[in-house]
Design a protein around this nucleic acid. Structure first.
Lengths: 255, 255
DNA sequence: AGGAGCGTTGCACCTACTGCAACGTCCATT
DNA sequence: AATGGACGTTGCAGTAGGTGCAACGCTCCT
């Protein structure tokens, strides 16, 4: 491990606490002022550190730019796929991955069931937004006013007797889903199909995608499917972790 | 300037473009694989890079956290946000908040009219500094010699026929903006988009941020947008008042 | 089973990082 | 106005430690 880089990077969390001048940085790093100066200069050239008008150092704007660009280039699908495949190996059912985009919920990945009886769905196709378990999770995470606006605008087709009938019922369901952190669709879209879904969250805690397992009654009952929920949630959490770059940080660098 | 740190930091923008393996990083840095490995390891220990399951490297969670903290230290943003949101409620258009830092102008907040969900999506991106209304305001407030130096160094891309063509034109525009206390961008960046902007000032009268409303021609004409100018200026003044009235002291949490 | 590609490690060399001390500048104090 | 102190900055000599090389181990593909 590189000492110089290590020291330089140690400056960042230090500055995250608030602005500091050269002396303070040098002290807390345990190095000579001149050394700290050179490190700060290098950080500065890369825009990670900003020198405010009173000459003290602060975290710089390039940090946003980097984080922002990294977000954009992150492909949930790519990251999630191995997890989805593994889940499918374990339970055998169809696994879906979906995102919310401009008023629609879209399937962006799918691993087919090993059983001969499969549910129909297509990647890229908008899902039945008022009933699908993944849709509930994605909408439940939106700010309340927006949820309301969307709910009012939607149609509520009665696919089955258990379909969500209207906006108030939908909003109530969303509230419930939001609180419990998972969702189901028990025959709300097609009479014989049940789903259990869990949210995938980004570094900021917001829901960026949702995943589900689906199976028809003829293969497993709704109750049996629900026993998979912990597994689904664990898988979703694993994807969240990887997506947000959450490293099991070791508390190494003290002395 | 420290070579080692310089190399290490050069990895970050490289990874922001997308995941890369050791060989790719080493090649693009122009160093031996073993060197790149050690740099990456150090970055990894600090959580700035993350190693995904396929062993490729990516920017890590710590970077997002730091960006977040850096952003939170900008208390203008906190103060301004409710005002921006209210303005957005009133006029329905996109509202931006931007600051100047180290030769760049960056959006630090945005309220999007149509897709409030994606409101963080472009924050952190440098703006088109030669044409954006907020950029003109922020640069116009710099001391004259500094303005000139910056203006000389800039590129003047012709996004549209109305883009600022060169340094003299830009300096003239800045002078005008400085005197009138507001700025516009009428199709200078994208043909169909107009903006009207106003400055936010600190207690000492210096411009600390700038805000704007933007709307495409298809929604409102440039003239109609300009009728919002008084409202934008009043909002900016309200933020200025609140910002300068408050003690901008951020206490360090330890010691 | 063999080979290619990639990450990893130990090592010797010498780059370039470090701490020191001296200098410049700004500000507060006398 | 003069002086002292605090802080940032720079040139320099010594050596800590970063670098590239080459060899090794692993996994995956043929």
């Amino acid at each position: 491990m590189s000492q110089t880089v290590d020291r330089a990077l140690s400056i960042l969390p230090l500055l995250a606490e608030g602005p500091a001048d050269l002396g303070q940085v040098a002290d807390r790093l345990g190095v000579h002022k001149s050394t700290a100066l050179r490190l700060l200069r290098t950080l500065h050239e890369h825009g990670l550190v900003y020198r405010q008008s009173d000459q003290r150092y602060r975290l710089g704007a390039r940090l946003f730019a980097l984080a922002q660009e990294a977000m954009e280039n992150l492909d949930i699908r790519e990251i999630a796929h191995p997890h989805l495949a593994r889940l499918n190996e374990t339970c055998g059912h169809t696994v879906h991955l979906a995102v919310y985009e401009e008023g629609e919920v879209l399937y962006i990945d799918k691993v087919e069931s090993r059983y001969p009886v499969r549910m129909y769905s297509r990647i890229g196709k908008p899902v039945a937004i008022t009933v699908a378990a993944v849709a509930k999770l994605l909408l439940a995470d939106l700010p309340e006013p927006e949820r309301r606006v969307i709910a009012e605008k939607l149609d509520y087709p009665l696919y089955t007797a258990r379909s969500t009938p209207n906006a108030p019922a939908f909003l109530r369901e969303l509230e419930k889903v939001r609180e419990q952190g998972w969702a189901t669709d028990l025959g709300g879209h097609e009479e014989s199909i049940n789903c259990a879904a869990a949210p995938i969250r980004g570094a900021d805690g917001r829901v960026v995608a949702a995943m589900s397992v689906s199976a028809p009654n003829v293969v497993v009952t709704a109750d049996e499917l629900l026993t998979l929920l912990p597994l689904v949630r664990r898988t979703a959490d694993a994807i969240s972790g990887e997506y947000s770059g959450r490293t099991p940080i070791k508390e190494a660098p003290k002395e």
